[in-house]
Amino acid sequence: MPSTVASSRRTTQRLRRAEPLATVLPVRPWVVAPSGPVGDTAQRRARVRRALWRLALQGIEPTIAPDVWRKDGYLAGPDPARVRALVEALNADHAFVWAARGGYGAMRLLPALDHLLKVRDKAPLFLGFSDLTAVFPLLVRKGFRCVHGPVLSQVSDLVESGPAGFTSLTKVLKSHPIPPLTFSTPDPWFGDEIEGPLWGGNLTLCAALCGTPYSPDYSGAILFLEDVGEPAYRLDRMLTQLELSGVLQAVQAVLVGDPGVRGSEKKAVEQRLHLIRERWGIPVLTGLPIGHQRRNACLEVGRTVKLSATPLKAGKTNITIRWV
Score class of each variant (00 low, 15 high):
44 R>S: 13
24 V>N: 00
150 P>C: 04
203 L>E: 07
80 P>S: 04
54 R>K: 14
16 R>M: 12
312 L>G: 14
89 A>G: 05
163 P>H: 09
162 G>K: 10
314 A>N: 15
10 R>H: 13
171 K>H: 15
292 H>A: 14
54 R>W: 04
273 L>I: 07
312 L>E: 15
141 R>Y: 02
214 Y>P: 01
22 A>D: 15
250 A>Y: 07
236 D>H: 13
172 V>H: 05
181 L>E: 08
309 A>S: 14
36 G>A: 12
223 L>D: 01
286 T>C: 11
234 R>W: 11
246 G>M: 10
105 G>F: 05
6 A>G: 06
254 V>N: 04
38 V>N: 09
98 W>Q: 01
117 L>C: 02
52 L>I: 11
186 P>S: 11
88 E>P: 00
78 P>F: 00
51 A>N: 06
313 K>I: 12
220 G>H: 04
233 Y>C: 02
315 G>N: 11
103 G>R: 06
298 C>L: 12
24 V>Y: 02
264 S>T: 15
200 G>Q: 08
187 D>K: 09
102 G>Y: 05
80 P>I: 04
151 V>Y: 01
257 G>Q: 08
135 V>N: 03
282 I>T: 02
119 V>K: 14
306 K>G: 10
244 L>N: 13
55 L>M: 09
306 K>D: 01
197 P>Q: 09
229 G>W: 06
87 V>R: 04
178 I>K: 05
228 V>L: 10
80 P>N: 06
98 W>T: 02
271 Q>D: 14
203 L>A: 03
185 T>W: 07
161 S>Y: 12
188 P>M: 06
274 H>F: 09
60 I>N: 05
103 G>F: 09
89 A>N: 08
166 F>Y: 15
90 L>G: 09
302 G>Q: 04
8 S>L: 15
263 G>V: 07
162 G>R: 10
170 T>K: 05
242 L>A: 00
95 A>I: 11
6 A>Q: 14
253 A>K: 04
133 T>H: 08
198 L>F: 01
181 L>K: 07
210 C>F: 04
246 G>L: 03
110 L>Q: 10
45 R>H: 09
302 G>C: 04
85 A>P: 00
253 A>D: 08
74 Y>C: 05
242 L>S: 00
141 R>W: 03
183 F>A: 01
27 V>E: 14
303 R>P: 01
239 L>E: 10
186 P>E: 09
79 D>P: 00
277 R>P: 06
189 W>C: 02
139 L>T: 05
13 Q>V: 10
10 R>T: 14
296 N>K: 03
110 L>R: 10
175 S>M: 09
19 E>N: 01
98 W>C: 01
68 V>G: 03
249 Q>H: 11
114 D>R: 15
209 L>G: 01
91 N>W: 02
63 T>N: 12
286 T>N: 12
147 V>T: 03
159 V>K: 13
8 S>I: 14
199 W>P: 00
212 T>M: 07
111 P>H: 10
221 A>R: 07
103 G>S: 10
72 D>Q: 11
96 F>L: 11
88 E>Q: 13
128 G>F: 06
42 A>G: 14
315 G>K: 12
183 F>W: 15
136 F>C: 08
83 V>C: 03
245 S>Q: 08
